[in-house]
């Protein structure tokens, strides 16, 4: 009787196994797979039910049958695992086969604004001089005649005032024609502290308007005052600047010039960035391009700033930002810089 029962149970186990394995091969979704697993191996599954019936078996038969059930269970679990992996792989294949995009379509754009080219150039100049230990000083755009002219060794009626056509607000107040007044303001503020080492970027104004002049434009002024400052130091600093700004292989040359607030004065040319010095249209065949004015601070100006010219010397320089931007970006007409056409601005 026991024997019959054992035979029956075994055949049931084998039947369940065969049916499960067969069904497994036909299933094609992870959900169906899971369903089948529950149906066979779950708490109320067919194999579990069979296991329960073994309670009627003798103590000798029970472990043997238990082992058979466990073997089948392991076999089925393994089969499930394999089938599940197979299905995953198939699903992946299917996904990869269907998920194809046109990679030539443009990407999602992140809105990106543009700095005005003059701002870019000013920041670049600032960064170069910050790297050389300069501070950034500022002063008012609406200036007194005193700071704009007189303290810079340009008394009223000085013929050099004619070089600059000024916008006046009153007889004594005007739009600054240069960033040089910041020299005096800085020295007044800092004296007797040494060294003074500043640049002063900002807007300046002259009564002029054509392809090479704008009534409002930008300058960067520079001033260094200390004991024992030499004209060769000016040359060294400006050579560093020119190379950082226009390229490692640039050279500079100084030419005598005249500014009321410097003596000796020098115009500074940089070797042409387009032809390297051999001569081209940009440098008008000379190989050199004028980029700034400079000189040793005039003793009267040092005095006006509160320093004793017997004890300290200094150098100063001033450059036009528009001119540098035009050279750097190859802009031919200065008016483009203030026209603010987006097609122009969005190039930078």
């Amino acid at each position: 009787m026991d024997l019959e029962r054992v035979i029956y149970l075994k055949s049931e186990i084998l039947r369940i196994r065969e049916e499960a394995l067969k069904e497994l091969r036909e299933l094609d979704s992870p959900e169906a797979l899971q369903e089948l697993k529950v149906k066979v191996l779950g708490k109320k599954g067919s194999l579990t039910a069979l296991l329960r019936q073994m309670g009627s078996l003798s103590a000798e038969e029970r472990p043997i049958m238990g082992q058979v059930v466990n073997e089948v269970r392991t076999r089925l679990e393994q089969a499930w695992e394999e089938r599940s992996e197979e299905l995953d792989a198939m699903a992946l294949q299917k996904r990869l086969a269907t998920e194809r995009i046109d990679i030539t379509l443009p990407g999602t754009r992140v809105a990106r604004g543009h700095y005005h080219p003059l701002t870019q150039v000013i920041e670049e100049i600032e960064d170069i001089f910050l790297g050389m230990g300069f501070q950034i000083a500022e002063g008012p755009e609406i200036e007194s005649d005193y700071y704009n002219f007189e303290a810079l060794n340009l008394p009223k009626e000085h013929p050099a005032r004619e070089m600059q056509d000024s916008f006046y607000i009153t007889e004594e107040i005007l739009l600054r024609t240069q960033t040089s007044p910041v020299q005096i303001r800085t020295m007044e503020k800092l004296h007797p502290h040494l060294p003074v080492k500043i640049i002063a970027p900002g807007k300046v104004y002259r009564n002029d308007d054509d392809a090479t002049h704008s009534p409002m434009f930008h300058q960067v002024e520079g001033l260094v005052v200390d004991r024992g400052i030499r004209m060769s130091d000016l040359k060294g600093i400006l050579l560093n600047f020119s190379r950082e700004m226009f390229g490692e292989s640039r050279e500079i040359r100084l030419r005598p010039s005249f500014f009321p607030f410097t003596e000796p004065s020098a115009e500074v040319d940089v070797s042409c960035m387009l032809c390297g010095g051999s001569g081209c249209r940009l440098c008008k065949g000379t190989g050199w391009i004028e980029i700034l004015g400079s000189g040793m601070v005039h003793p009267k100006v040092l005095e006006m700033g509160g320093y004793n010219p017997q004890e300290v010397t200094g150098f100063a320089f001033g450059m036009g930002v528009e001119r540098i931007a035009m050279l750097k970006f190859g802009i031919e007409d200065m008016r483009l810089l203030f026209d603010n056409d987006l097609r122009f601005l969005q190039q930078f």
């Binding site: 910050l130 060294p195 200390d226 040359k235």
Partner: peptide, 20 residues
């Protein structure tokens, strides 16, 4: 000739460049 002027750097105290 201005070309005779060499290129040197200021010899005084070192300063730190920084924006306010």
């Amino acid at each position: 000739g201005y070309d005779r002027i060499p290129t040197t750097l200021p010899q005084g105290d070192q300063t730190q460049g920084r924006r306010t």
